[in-house]
Amino acid sequence: MYQQQQQNQQHQPILTEEDLVSTVLADLKRNVREYATAATESTCPDIRQMFTKLMNSTLTLQGQLFEAMKQQNMYNTSSPALRQDLDKQAKSYQQTQQKTQQFLQQKLGQQQNQSMYTPNGQHAFNQHQGNQPHYM
């Protein structure tokens, strides 16, 4: 009886499969961030490119594992956001976008009649920064 119990314990892993896989998923997420940081901190173009490739590859692995866990019901996804919350945020951020466009037109529109959102407009912005004093 005791021997049997001991045998069962030996075959029973310390962590469940779900715990193990969750640890792997958490580490994949951490490694994606680590590669992103490494790429942004790199000076050599070839090293930066390598970190970028490894980041993308790790992101793919994380996505695959997440999908596999979801199929096994090992992952509780967040509940859907409510319609009224989406409406509220969409309205609020449309206003922000409009205000910023007005701000850009006021500051840059006087210099040149070009939109900030065109490549030429970007160029105009650089010129503006270089030649004109800021009154902000």
């Binding site: 792997v24 994949l28 490694n31 680590e34 000076t43 050599c44 090293i47």
Partner: peptide, 28 residues
């Protein structure tokens, strides 16, 4: 270009991370 000291630190840190992931995947 020569690798910077910072890049070397990231490269070896990432090798440690990958090594751990290899072992974790082997367990699963």
């Amino acid at each position: 270009q020569p690798m910077t000291a910072k890049e070397l630190e990231y490269v070896v840190d990432c090798m440690s991370n990958e090594d751990l992931q290899i072992k974790q995947c082997a367990v699963v």
